[in-house]
């Protein structure tokens, strides 16, 4: 009974055990930085704050977890920005051609071509960057930091025509 009660107490108070709650990632430092107009310089701000607020955040494991948290956050933002652009592109492609002008290229196809090219570029760049550190404990984190940075920059590029 005593063991069961202890287990129940632990289950009800997960915040009392920081090591089990994962990195303390918060997107606030990124969004605040973006609101101040610092653009791509804001990529990495969330991971940076995370390493300082997460117990053990300064270790390779802690740093890697914080980087991965921000990378995943940017990935969601990228998908949202891409979907927004795709919806706009579909709308643009439905517009009637302007008489006298050459037919406009498909915005949907142009957007898809860019995103495919970006994925190839990201994979080549980050594989190379990871390899610069190969053999060291930070190699994986270097590759993931590259993916975080590039995903953030591409998100901001996609947002840029909206002024975000």
């Amino acid at each position: 009974m005593r063991l069961t009660l202890s287990a129940l107490c632990l289950a009800l108070t997960p915040l009392a055990v920081p090591a089990q709650t994962g990195p303390a990632f918060d997107s606030g430092p990124i969004t605040n930085c973006l609101a101040d107009g610092h653009g791509t310089a804001c990529v990495g701000r969330g991971a940076e704050a995370c390493t300082m607020t997460t117990p053990g955040g300064g270790s390779n494991v802690g740093y890697g977890a914080c980087i991965e948290s921000e990378r995943a956050w940017w990935d969601i933002e990228l998908n949202a920005a891409y979907q927004m652009r795709m919806n706009e592109a579909r709308s643009i492609d439905r517009e009637a051609p302007i008489p006298g002008l050459r037919p406009r290229p498909s915005d949907v196809e142009s957007l898809r071509a860019m995103q495919r090219a970006w994925i190839t570029f990201r994979d080549a760049t980050c594989a190379f960057e990871e390899l610069q550190w190969w053999g060291g404990t930070g190699a994986g984190a270097a590759g993931n930091a590259c993916r975080m940075r590039m995903t953030g920059e591409q998100t901001l590029y996609l947002r840029s025509l909206l002024g975000g």
Partner: peptide, 25 residues
């Protein structure tokens, strides 16, 4: 094997595609 030439070629392809998309707006 990631090579510098591959990275540069992929960057050029990305930049051309990205700027073509933006130009089209």
């Amino acid at each position: 094997v990631p090579a510098l030439a591959t990275i540069e070629a992929s960057f050029t392809a990305y930049r051309d595609a990205a700027c073509a998309w933006r130009e089209g707006q």
